[in-house]
Design a protein around this nucleic acid. Structure first.
Lengths: 333, 333
DNA sequence: CTGAAAGCGCTAACAG
DNA sequence: CTGTTAGCGCTTTCAG
C-alpha cells in the first residue's frame, strides 16, 4: 500500500556492524552520553560518516518520549494573521532560537473550535513537547484550553493569559511617547487607541496619560490603517488645535498621517505623531514614523526559551518575562 | 534523567483490553483499514472515547515510515523574510491546505550553509515526508541540493528551479498592466524593474514591453520601497513627460508614489501607477494602488497539494503549476 | 472477520 | 568502559 522508500536505510545496527561495536555504543557516541573510549569513538564516527547515518527520530522519540518539536500556534483571527508583518517578526525570533537548540517548530492555525481541538489533540498525541501561542484577541479560548489541559505552553503578550507569557512594558512605552512629545514642546495632545478590550492598547494609553494627564482626548480605532485615518479625522474635527498625537500602533499611525495630510496639516510642523511597534509600517510611511519599539524578535526568542525550560523542568514556576520598549525617533516628531 | 511524563498514558493495548478485543482490531478501526464487525467497531469507539486515546505518532511513524509532516523551508535571505507580508500569505495558503489533509508543517529557516545542511539532514532523519521551499534568490542553492538529494520537494516560483514549482504568469501580468495603462490613454510610459537576476521581475517587464514596446525606459530597483523611490526620481529626471509607470512590485510602487508626490505630481492625474503583487502595501499606499494580483494563497495551497501528490506517488512526473494574474484597479490609475 | 506475533530503530537499565 | 537485553506503541503479515 505504501510505496515510499525509507529516506535513509542505514540504521544504528549498520553503523555498529561496520565499526565492530554494539548498537549501544554507537548510540552513546551519537548522543554523547557516558564516556566512550576515544579510539572507538573515532571508529564509530568514521562509520557514521561513511554510511551517512542519521538517527531515526520516530524511533528515538518513541523511547525518549520527547519530540524536540514545539507547536507554534497562531490563534485568534483567521489566516490573515500571517499578513501582519508584526507576526512575521515574532516567528523569526522563535524559529531562530529553536533552531539553535535543535528544536523544530510546527506551525498550526487555530481559528475555530475544530482547529483548536485539533491542536490539543496533536499535543496529546505526543507530536510536540510544548506549545507557543501567538494570539491577538484576549477573548481567544486557546490559552485557557492549553492551561486546563496542563500542557507546557507559553504565550506572546498578556492576551495569552492564563499562560506564562512574554510581553513588553506597554505602559512605560506610553510614558516614553508622552515625555517625548512634551519635550518637543507639544502641549495640545491627543491619542488614538486600539480596541477597548485589548490590554496592550489600554496600557499604552494609560502610560501616556500618566505623564500627559488624564484628560487627553482619545479616539478609538481597531489597529488597522483605515481606522487610524478615521480616528484622526474625528479628533481633528473636535479639537482643531492638536499639535501632538500618540497612536497605539504603527498601522493606525500611518492612517493618521494620511488624515493629517489630507487636512492640510504638516507633520511634524503642525502636528507631531508617535506610533507604537516599530513595524515595517513605520518605515513605509511618509514622513517616517517616530515610534515606540518592541523588541519583537527577542521576545519571540524569550518565549521559546521559556517554553523549553518549562519542558525540561515542568515544576519550574513561570510567570511572565517583560521587555523594555524603546523610543525610536524618526521624522514624524 | 528525563522527568517528563507522557502526555497521554493510554495506549492501543488499554483500549483493546477495555473493548475486549485485540490490539490489531483496535488499530483497524482507528485506521479504517479492512472491515470490522460493526458491533465491535462500536465497542472500540466507546473505549476510545472513554479512555481519551489518541495514537502515538512516533510509534506509528516508526512502522509506516511516514510522518505526515512536511518541511516549510524559508530559504535565501535571512530572518526578515518573515517581515514580508507576501511570505505570510504563502504560509497561510500552505498551512490551510495541509491542515485539511492532516499534515503538519515544520517551519525551517535556511539562510546559510549550516542551516541548509541541517534541512537535508532532518529530511533524511525522516522528520518529514517532503519539503516546500520558498525562496527569493535565484542563486539560492537549496533547491538544487534538494533535487540532488532526490527528496520530494516543491518550490514557490521559478527561483526554486530545478524543483517542480508553482508560479504566476508574470509575463501575462506585465501585459495586463500595459494594456490597462494604454486604455487609460497613457502613452508616455516607463517601468521600474526589480533586481536584474530575478526572473519574476524580468518577465513582468518583458510582458509590459510586449504590449508597450521594447523601448520603454526602465529604472532598476531591488524590490524595496526606498529603491522604488530612487528609481522614480531617476526616471523623472530623464523623462519629465512620463504619464504612466509600471512597477515590478507593490513595495517599489509605494516608493514611486512618494517620489511622484515630492515632485509635485498628482497620481493618477499626472502620472498613473500600476504595481504588482497586490500585497498589503497596495492598500496602505495613498492613493491606493492599482496592481496585478498574484493569487498567493491559492499558489501556496497548490504547492502543498503538488508535494503531497509527489509523496504519495514518487513516480508522478511533476513540472510546474501556473496561475493567472489579475488586474485590480484602485486609485492610482 | 479477528487474533497472535513479529518487528520498525532506538535508548536505557543492567551486567560484566 | 562496553555489550546484552528488553521494550517504547504501533501496524501488518499470517493463520485461523
Amino acid at each position: 500500500m505504501n510505496t515510499r522508500r525509507s529516506p535513509s536505510a542505514v540504521t544504528l545496527e549498520d553503523v555498529a556492524k561496520m565499526a565492530g561495536v554494539s548498537r549501544a555504543t554507537v548510540s552513546r557516541v551519537v548522543n554523547g552520553t557516558r564516556n566512550v573510549d576515544i579510539a572507538i569513538q573515532d571508529a564509530v564516527r568514521q562509520a557514521i560518516e561513511k554510511t551517512g547515518y542519521s538517527p531515526n527520530r520516530a524511533a528515538r522519540s518513541l523511547v525518549t518520549r520527547r519530540t524536540d518539536a514545539v507547536a507554534l500556534v497562531v490563534s485568534g483571527s483567521s489566516g490573515d494573521v500571517f499578513a501582519d508583518p508584526f507576526f512575521g517578526r515574532v516567528v523569526g525570533g522563535v524559529v531562530g532560537y529553536l533552531r539553535d537548540h535543535h528544536v523544530h517548530a510546527l506551525l498550526m492555525l487555530a481559528d475555530d473550535e475544530i482547529t483548536r481541538a485539533d491542536v490539543l489533540h496533536r499535543v496529546r498525541q505526543g507530536d510536540v513537547d510544548g506549545v507557543l501561542v501567538v494570539n491577538t484577541d484576549p477573548e481567544d479560548p486557546m490559552p485557557a484550553m492549553l492551561r486546563i489541559a496542563g500542557l507546557p505552553a507559553v504565550g506572546f503578550s498578556r492576551t495569552a493569559f492564563p499562560l506564562p507569557f512574554v510581553d513588553v512594558r506597554h505602559r512605560e512605552g506610553g510614558r516614553m511617547a508622552a515625555r517625548h512629545l512634551l519635550e518637543r514642546g507639544r502641549l495640545k495632545l491627543a491619542t488614538i487607541s486600539g480596541p477597548r478590550h485589548v490590554p496592550a492598547s489600554q496600557n499604552r494609553i494609560r502610560g501616556f496619560r500618566d505623564i500627559a494627564g488624564e484628560r487627553v482626548p482619545n479616539a478609538r480605532g481597531n489597529f488597522t490603517m483605515a481606522s487610524g485615518e478615521e480616528a484622526m479625522d474625528e479628533l481633528l474635527e473636535e479639537y482643531s488645535d492638536i499639535n501632538g498625537v500618540f497612536v497605539a500602533n504603527d498601522l493606525m499611525a500611518q492612517g493618521a498621517l494620511v488624515a493629517l495630510r489630507e487636512n492640510g496639516l504638516n507633520v511634524p510642523g503642525d502636528v507631531a505623531v508617535v506610533g507604537f511597534d516599530d513595524s515595517s509600517a513605520a518605515l513605509a510611511s511618509r514622513p517616517k514614523l517616530t515610534t515606540i519599539r518592541q523588541p519583537v524578535e527577542e521576545m519571540g526568542a524569550a518565549m521559546a526559551q521559556t517554553l523549553l525550560e518549562h519542558v525540561r523542568n515542568p515544576d519550574s514556576v513561570l510567570g511572565k518575562v517583560m521587555f523594555e520598549p524603546e523610543l525610536v525617533i524618526r521624522d514624524s516628531s
